[in-house]
Every structure is written in C-alpha cells, then in structure tokens.
Nucleic acid binder design. Sequence first.
DNA 1: AAATAATATGCAAGCGATTGCATGAAATTA
DNA 2: TAATTTCATGCAATCGCTTGCATATTATTT
Lengths: 339, 339
Amino acid sequence: MAKSSITINDIARELKVAPSTVSRALNNSNKISNATKRKIVEKAEELGYNLNMVAASLSRSQTNTIGVVIPYLNNYFYSQVVNGIEELAFNKGYRILIAQTRDSFARETEIMRTMSATRVDGIIACLSADTQSTEHLFKLIKNNIPLVLFDRVSFDFPCKKVTIDNYNAMQQSVTHLARSGYKSIAHLGGPTTCNIYTEHSKAFRETLKKEKLPLIPQFHLSSDLTEEDISEAMQIWFSLKTKPDAIITASSTAALLVSKFAREQNLSIPDDLALISLTSEPALCYVEPQITSIELPGTEIGKTTLEFLLNEIQNGAQNANTTIKPFQLIIRNSSFRNS
Amino acid sequence: MAKSSITINDIARELKVAPSTVSRALNNSNKISNATKRKIVEKAEELGYNLNMVAASLSRSQTNTIGVVIPYLNNYFYSQVVNGIEELAFNKGYRILIAQTRDSFARETEIMRTMSATRVDGIIACLSADTQSTEHLFKLIKNNIPLVLFDRVSFDFPCKKVTIDNYNAMQQSVTHLARSGYKSIAHLGGPTTCNIYTEHSKAFRETLKKEKLPLIPQFHLSSDLTEEDISEAMQIWFSLKTKPDAIITASSTAALLVSKFAREQNLSIPDDLALISLTSEPALCYVEPQITSIELPGTEIGKTTLEFLLNEIQNGAQNANTTIKPFQLIIRNSSFRNS
DNA sequence: AAATAATATGCAAGCGATTGCATGAAATTA
DNA sequence: TAATTTCATGCAATCGCTTGCATATTATTT
C-alpha cells in the first residue's frame, strides 16, 4: 500500500476545514454546501487523492466486496455465471473476490474462512463435489455473512438457492431419446455426492421405467468424468455384446470425448449412437454432428444469485427458498436419426 | 460485516491481558511465552474469533490481495492464466480480486481506479484490445502499486512483462504451411491496436516474402474476430476467383468457426484448405480434423507473472524487462495433406 | 424583531488491528 | 551479590475514514 498517499486529512489541512467535512463532501453528502464541495473535489483532484477503501471499509463495517466460490474457473458454465455476477456487481459498485475449490472440501472450508476474515459482504457459492458437511456454511451465518448457493446446492442448508430442475432435464432427455427410437440408453453421470447428479440418476431410472426401457445397471455410471473415466467407460461398453445406442453425459466435455471416441471407432452419430449432454458449451456446435444439449442460462443465474445476495445484504436474511431457472433442451443432430 | 463479531479486545478482556499481547500471540510472535500463547489461542477458538483482515490491512498497509485484470474470463487462455495465478496466490496467502475489461479502455481505467482504492498489493493485467494510452498505468506506479503485464502488453510502459514470441509463432505457422505446399495463405488477425496482432501481421508479411509466397492484401485481415467478422470474411474469400488454400486465425474460436464453415461448404480440411490457430483450446481436438495450433503455457504464464509481482511487492520495483515464454506449434491434421 | 427552523461545519469517538517503546521480572554474567 | 541481559508483557499511538452530536450561522416564521 502506498505509504505516501494523500488522505482526507491532507486535503482538510490545505483547505483549513475539518476532515469530516472533506469526507462528507467527497461522499456527496447533502449537508455540505455546494461551494465547499466544489472546492474540496477540486483540491482532491489536484492532489491526486484516491479513497482508501480499506479504511472506509473498516469504519463502515462494509467492504463492498462479494466472495464468489466455484469449483473451477475454467469451465464454460461457471465462467458464464461469474460473468453475470461480475457485470452486475461492477454496475452496483461491488468488487468480486474469486476462489476455486477445485472440488476439494478442505479448500472450500479454508476459502470460507479467509473470506470471512476478509469481511466480504456476502458469498455466492457453488459447492464442491465432495462437500459433505455444511458446518463451514453455518459458520458464515454465525459471522453474519449472507450466502446464496447456485447450481450445486445443499438442500439441508437454510439459505436462498438458485438452480435448475435437473430431474426434468434428464427426464426430457431420456424421453426425447426414447421417442427417437433409441432403446438402450446409457448415462455417464457425475459424483453422487452432489445433488445435481443424484437428481439426474433418479430421473434416469424413473424415466426409463416410464418409457418402458430397460435399465441396464452397467449403463448407469457415476464418476468424476475425467478423460480417463470416460475413455474407460467407452472401452467397456463398446466391447459388450449389447452396446448402448444412446449416451447421456453429465458434462459437455464428456460429450465431446464420446463424440471423438465414436469418430475414432467409426460409430456414426446419430445412427449408431445418439448423444446428449446435460450441460452446454460452444464447442458442442463446432463438432460434427452438433450435439444436443441442455442449455443453462449461466449469465442469468449469476445475475439472479447476486440480486438475491444484495437484497440480503441490504435487508437482512430472507426466506430460504429455492429459485428454479428454466433450461432448454436444444435438439441438434446428435440425437435423432435422419431417416 | 458482522456487527457483533469477536475482537482481540474481547479476548484480551476475558484473559486480563493487553490486546497487543493477543495480537502478538495470534501472529505467533516469538516475544510471547508459549503458555500465554496457548491460553490465547484456546480462548480465541472458544469464542469463535476470526481475524478482521480489513483492520489488519489498514494497520499493516498491506491487504494481501492481488488484482487480476483480464479482457474476458470466459476464454480458455485467460482462465488458464488465472488458474495459475490463483493456485500460487492461494498457497502464498494472497487473495485475488478479478475484473474483466471486456476489451473496453474505459472499463480498464475505472478498474484500475477502484483497485487502487481497494489498495491491492499489486496488479496483474492483460491490456484490453482498445487500450491506447498508459496514463492509467502510470497512476498505479504513482500510487506505489506494482504492476506486471502479460500477453497483451504495452512496450511503452516500464514494468515487467511476460509474453510469448508472437512473431515467431506466426513465422513458424507460415513456414509450416509453405513447406506443406500451401500457396495462398490468408490471415484472420485481431485488432491492430494490440501488440500481439501487430507482431502477427508483421511476421505474416515478412515470412510470406521469405517463403516467396504472394501477399494478397485481401487475405490479410484484421478484425475483432467476432462470429460475424469471421463469417463475413469467409463469404468474401470463398466467392473470389482465387481462394485461399490456408488460413491462419488469431483466435481458436475463429479457427473453430472456419472449420465449421468449411464443413458446411464441403471444403475438405486439409485438402482444400489448411487451418492453423495461433491460440489453443481443448475444442480444437474435438473437431475433425483436429486443428493445428500454437499451444501457450497459460498456467505457467500465470505463475511466472505472479512470482514477478510478489517479488516486486517484497523487494520494490525491479528492472522492466520482458520474459518470453516458450510456445509449441502442435501440428495436427488440419495443416498438411495426407498424400 | 424575537423565536424557531434549517443549513453548514467542526469535534471527537470509534472501526479492529499492529507495533515501537517502556517496564518489570527472571536469568545470566562478572 | 551487584550489574547486565534477556524475556514477556503492557501502553498508547497509528492506519484513514465515517458519523452522531454539538454548535454557529443564516433563513424562515409569526
């Protein structure tokens, strides 16, 4: 921090007024005459004064900073969400402090601790895949720091949440595949420690049943969706006597990998194999055929989440309800036969 | 900020010691006996004490926060860089404050201003595409805030920079295409307000000459690389009598769009058209054929940049040199004919 | 014109840490 | 044992800004 920086006291001294007057003038308080305001603003300009937010934060017990906690930055959906948050925050005069959990519970806990110390005005978080307990979240509440969760939420925890109907996303996907004549549908799901993926799983099982399609246990996988996980699953599935004729992946990266695998194995999508991704990213449209996917309103989710948070910051804790955002199943060429 | 939070004074009072003793104990100063340290740490635990970093920052004139300023978050390369920064920062006990310029100079200026006010300990930035002046950067220096630039840098400005040899990247790309027998090479470049793109342009022209290939002015484009820009360029180029037989794009998104265009027009890559991208993202490997590209060490760049910055924070301003990071031209199937 | 209200400014106490200096007690040296 | 260090702790100022309350000045009301 600059040692020699100009403070309101310097301005006050030069102008022979009280520091409090300078403070009020610079904050455009209506208790200061326009003449003095002008004088002060000019002098501030002249001296190159720059507000010390740290001091202001301490004195106001408010930092105008929002903590954003996400699993990974390097992910289309999350960066869309952060985009939405950042845009709105910037306009409302808030800064954002970002940290990645990298899906580690330990990191998440540590992050919440340091964000508490930093006295962020509130936190927006998408829980890590291996978050098992909510003790660290309760500590936030105890420290009076409002929290809003999105996407991967913990229904145990009493706070506002913004998410989508994951059950329905899977249901629509399975139904669409069934209507398109696919019979043995497989699912590459995410870790079941996470609400999203358990909702997917449930919907997968129930919708297959409703559509009178078989649920082949081997075709119902749950993993961390790493490149190895995907590749292993493909190896196994496509060396079976009855192979899947459709795959629903929980992540778009997984879908892209499946599409690549299919090309390498000369499996035609969508003729031999249909493909649907439950999340989306632009690359899905750059491959051939383009991949059917669930489009999530990332930016919109970010904005809504921040709106809720700002509301809590200004008006205190609100009801702990869950807002369900709409999604769209965008049908591209990977999920229905042209015939 | 929590109104009712526990302070070191509360701990001091309960234990009948001085606040300074508590502060020293919690900072593990060696001037406090182990017995009192233990007592204090226990009591802190018991009361649920959580350091107020805002107060600590004010009093220490140091926030342990690094500002990160990038054009867009939602971009593979930048998120890699931020990844590298975040990882190292976390380990070193620094937080990161992120802001996007969205390639607007006005926003960049405003961001630098608020980051100064926030008293970040230093700033890492990749300049916006339309940054014309460096006045806002000089203000940082005047405020004693160290700055390190990466990727899109301003050579006018005296500070450490981390970048790659963009001239060489283009040179290698053109040479590779020439050696592979492509004759009319086109370039979809970025805005020339940016050092990167002017370096590309220069190398493009000079290398074509060296390779005794024609420089067709129409094939040397500079734009913002939006979807419309690309699509327009394609329309025009492929309605000419002599069409390009190779395209070098400045962004990977542009490359993916070209690849999509080619597929739609039944142009075979690499037979009818070669394609090289001067930046990289995973999607380049998901399309068919996979796209040759320049791979940049994003995470590495992030780490190095932060290391330089931390060094300046600790030891004061250093020499304003530029560090050139190595890149790799990864040749995939889009840039040489199989024959 | 006296009484009241509105306006503009100053005073001083915070906000919650950190830290240089002083001090008393215990340990070491001569 | 007296003199000198070393060790552990406390005192009080400081970081730069905000804000409730007091006060002086000017404007409005009756």
